[in-house]
Design a protein around this nucleic acid. Structure first.
Lengths: 207, 207
DNA sequence: CAACAAAATTTCCTATAGGAAATTTTTGTA
DNA sequence: TACAAAAATTTCCTATAGGAAATTTTGTTG
């Protein structure tokens, strides 16, 4: 399996200075400043977008005041971030500043009776998405004992061949290379190849 | 753009009764009252748990005042709900039991100077992943004014051509069709085509 | 339907958030 | 360096959130 180690740059100065108390400081100010700066906005511009005064924004960012909820709403709306996202821990589940490579064909094989999965990016734990390429051996809906069903959402892109996606509640649908689907994975689903050959698809699951 | 209508399974009763006003009312007051009552707490008890005055709680629940962020923190902590959860729409992200199709080439075009994005599954709002196919026009790292950087994680699969992925902290890496990468999108990143032709890649972003 | 108790709301202050304008700091350029 | 322009911060008010206590509402029992 492939992996990489950086040649060690400073990984993260991690904004905040010193020691952060354990739970829930939730540096709203720092957070907002990051968001604003990522969008390349001055306080003045942000002020116009949000309807809050420059001074107010400054004080919020410097944690001199605790914004009211209505202020937070204006902020979120004006800067186009949704509120849960605003308060979610900034860290993504995966350690910051990492990446993994999987060369073609070098994923982790995971065969079943109907599919031949090749899991990608397996070196990375706790990631939000699970990507895998799948060779579809199933030729018939009867090949399934039952629907596949699990938490989360699923994105599907056909790479080669012709397939039919069966899902609960809907008619099966034929897909050609380049076609893609996005669906709720809680809804039963299954894939079959419509041609003589096995089909090849990319799947990405978000939990 | 492609879309589908099922032959009518119960699509969504859409949880909440009554009429929900369109955007962003986010009935914080109602929400809090629900939470408190679900825990069988009187205002007095909630007051003790949160450290906020009865009267304040009452006013917040009745939307007579807009709580400060510190008040919201006390509430969340005292009633043991986390803040993102507090603000998250109660219902699951995508309406249950739905799927959307995007035929090859039928995505939503979104060109920039260096890329030609084709957004997929755009008919589906509030999904966890954002998939798009991108034609990479950039030939040179200099084509970027700066790193692209945003919340979330990113999965990349090369479909055609040869590309180099530039990321902060790491050496650029050359990728061929079938190769894939998974990385933290907070880390600056950018993609260039290494061949004469534009390259084609699939990107999936999870926020 | 009184009469009471428990809970919720309102009142009436004090403390603090929000806005306009003045001041200071930063940034870029000669 | 020095200076000008832009950006950020601070000051100084006004508006509004937060708390203690009074008032009203709700719900229960004889």
């Amino acid at each position: 399996m492939s992996e990489e180690q950086p040649d060690m740059p400073e990984l993260k100065i991690e904004s905040g200075s010193g020691t952060e108390a354990r739970v829930e400081p939730l540096q709203l100010g720092k957070r907002l400043r990051q968001i604003r700066q990522n969008q390349n906005l001055t306080l003045e511009e942000a002020s116009q977008k949000t309807g809050l005064a420059r001074s107010t924004l400054s004080k919020i960012e410097n944690e001199q005041i605790s914004p009211t909820f209505t202020a937070v709403q204006k902020l979120a709306h004006g800067l186009d971030v949704d509120i849960p996202q605003l308060f979610a821990k900034p860290k993504s589940s995966m350690a910051s500043g990492r990446r993994v490579l999987t060369r073609a064909g070098e994923g982790t094989a995971h065969p079943t009776s109907t599919y031949e999965h090749e899991l990608l990016s397996t070196d990375l734990a706790r990631k939000k998405m699970i990507p895998f390429k799948t060779r579809v051996r199933a030729r018939d809906f009867e090949d399934f004992s039952d629907w596949v069903r699990h938490e989360g959402e699923e994105f599907l892109l056909v790479l080669e061949g012709e397939v039919a996606l069966y899902t609960e509640f809907y008619e099966p649908i034929a897909l050609l290379p380049g076609d893609s689907m996005y669906y709720d994975a809680n809804m039963g689903h299954g894939l079959v190849s419509l041609s003589e050959e096995d089909a090849l698809v990319l799947w990405v699951v978000a939990r």
